[in-house]
């Protein structure tokens, strides 16, 4: 908010404009060219590098494979991959499992994030608030893999949990429980939920809360009727991360829960050389996430991203 003061007076145009200058002057009068130049780079990058790649991947879903060597045969068209996905019920089981855990992680993170975000935004003193923002941000910088391994050492036999709970007769959960995936994924993505909610709460003017209180609403009612609806888009923005990151993860489910998620099927098949199946199954998270994003956009979440 201190930007205006740092702005100095613009240079007066030099008497003998160089070629670049003249081009700039010309541009000034041609808004459309300006716009196209600005948009050209990013759009080309996205269309060529990203959508082009996605397209080639989806094309690969229709390619045939040599049943013995597993060699993919480009442009030998086949629906085998889709047939496997439909006929083998295991792929549906995995999809349901993944989406269930992704939803559970999202709800858990929202429940954990709202109180702390609220405290940071509305109760903490500015100094404490700044410290807390740093405290929530720092774990984001700690390497993802390292955090997963930290959880492994906590969960496995002879680990921290067994040490802490052993005296109460609780065994170490080991590394084969699906609940581990729920806990660890909730842990990993929690900062992604806290930060947008915090930013959303911070944007709500204090006067609204005061007005609600003046009109006789108690704190609970103010929260439910004023705060929550206003911060909801931010919550949805955070949920995009918690949901999508869970949907695509394959390292955490494998390392802490010995469970197969959608990401594992895609990764395993790609590492086993069955690209068509990996590509065909990729359609699932793509479709789910595009649907999720369209709903999120309607709910206004994009302004909070």
């Amino acid at each position: 908010m201190t930007t205006a003061s740092s702005v100095s007076a613009p240079e007066t145009p030099t008497p003998q404009p160089g070629r670049l200058r003249r081009f700039a002057a010309w541009l000034h009068l041609h808004k459309r060219v300006q716009r196209n130049l600005l948009l050209g780079g990013p759009l080309t990058w996205m269309v060529v590098a990203y959508f082009g790649s996605l397209f080639i991947l989806l094309l690969g879903a229709f390619w045939d494979r040599d049943p013995f060597t597993g060699q993919v045969q480009p442009f030998a068209w086949s629906l085998d991959a889709f047939e496997s996905l439909i006929t083998n019920p295991v792929y549906l089981t995995i999809a349901v499992r993944t989406i269930t855990i992704a939803a559970a992680v999202t709800v858990t993170d929202a429940i954990l994030a709202v109180p702390i975000a609220y405290y940071m935004a509305r109760i903490a003193t500015p100094r404490v608030r700044q410290l807390m923002v740093v405290a929530v941000l720092m774990p984001l910088w700690a390497a993802y893999l390292v955090k997963v391994y930290a959880w492994r050492t906590i969960l496995q036999g002879n680990g921290f949990l067994e040490w802490a709970l052993g005296p109460f007769g609780v065994d170490a959960p080991g590394l084969g429980q699906i609940l581990n995936a729920w806990v660890v994924l909730s842990y990993l993505w929690l900062p992604y939920m806290i930060l947008p909610i915090f930013a959303g709460l911070e944007r709500i003017p204090n006067s609204l809360h005061e007005a609600s209180a003046d009109l006789g609403a108690r704190a609970g009612i103010t929260f439910r009727r004023v705060t929550l609806p206003l911060v909801f888009p931010a919550l949805v923005a955070g949920s995009i991360f918690t949901f999508s990151l869970t949907l695509g993860d394959y390292i955490t489910p494998d390392l802490v829960a010995d469970a197969k998620f959608v990401g594992n099927v895609i990764y395993d098949n790609s590492s086993l050389g069955n690209l068509p199946l990996a590509a065909a199954y990729s359609l699932l998270p793509i479709v789910v996430m595009i649907g999720y994003l369209l709903v999120a956009r309607r709910l206004g979440a994009f302004d909070s991203l």
Partner: peptide, 28 residues
């Protein structure tokens, strides 16, 4: 299976292949 797939990527010079990979690598 993973070894065969890595070989298909064309980025490697060689592999310590077990018998269930060797036949596939030769055939392809």
């Amino acid at each position: 299976n993973n070894g065969v797939s890595l070989m298909q990527s064309g980025e490697y010079d060689g592999i310590s292949a077990s018998g269930d990979a060797t036949t596939r690598l030769i055939a392809s």
